[in-house]
């Protein structure tokens, strides 16, 4: 109640919008829901724009402060500005925009992911050196089984591992744990969402 008096508009907006959407799962409120969701889609896109502006402002501040990492901030701002101007004016489907995406963004991201392959193997190989308990052993054993059943080892598919063992492990054993995780995640989502919808949590600055 106290916080409601402090920021009644924000809380009212959150509750009204939220409960309207929630009630639309039950009652026929499609028109109203479409209207509100249309606003949210636009505001979310504007929020993305706002986030990028904030990132630029932060690095511009670093650039002005002349710290040791100012060069990195300079590169970030320049690349951001050029990309924004090109893509926003020409559109993402234009060749210039596609060139930026194909030759800068995609190779860098994919390379970062590729480097992770080395890191993952290295970490997994050291796992039992650092920690030897039942769960670490289970982790490593079933990771190896799954990998061994995912493709050919030395050019050959290991009998039964890829056809029988791996599917059973991934769909039954791991599937059971995954189902528990999914239910747990949904319960957590519901609890967190309801706290927002009951104004117990106000992560919008109220």
């Amino acid at each position: 109640m106290k916080s409601f008096m402090k920021s009644p508009v924000s809380i009212s907006v959150a509750l009204a919008g939220g409960w309207l959407i929630l009630l639309a799962y039950i009652f026929d409120l499609d028109a109203l829901r479409t209207q509100v969701l249309g606003w949210v889609v636009l505001v979310a896109a504007a929020g993305l724009l706002l986030g990028v502006l904030n990132l630029a402002a932060v690095h511009f501040g670093k650039l002005r402060s002349g710290t040791r990492n100012a060069l990195y901030s300079f590169l970030l701002i320049i690349s951001m500005f050029i990309t924004f101007v090109v893509v926003a004016t020409l559109g993402p489907g234009h060749e210039a925009s596609q060139w930026i995406f194909t030759n800068i963004q995609l190779p860098v991201e994919a390379s970062l992911m590729a480097v992770m392959a080395v890191t993952l193997v290295f970490a997994a190989a050291r796992l039992l050196s650092r920690r030897t308990d039942l769960f670490a052993i289970l982790f490593v054993v079933f990771a190896v089984i799954t990998l061994a059943g995912s493709g050919p080892l030395l050019g050959f598919n290991i009998p039964l591992v890829g056809d029988v063992l791996r599917p059973w492990v991934t769909q039954v054993l791991a599937g059971a744990g995954a189902r528990g995780i999914l239910i747990g995640v949904s319960l957590g989502t519901i609890a967190t969402g309801l706290r927002v919808l009951l104004a117990a949590d106000k992560p919008y600055g109220a």
């Binding site: 392959a117 193997v121 290295f122 190989a125 796992l127 039992l128 990771a143 990998l147 080892l153």
Partner: peptide, 9 residues
């Protein structure tokens, strides 16, 4: 990957 992880383990 399998060989490295298995040997390391």
């Amino acid at each position: 990957g399998v060989a490295t992880i298995a040997v390391g383990a």
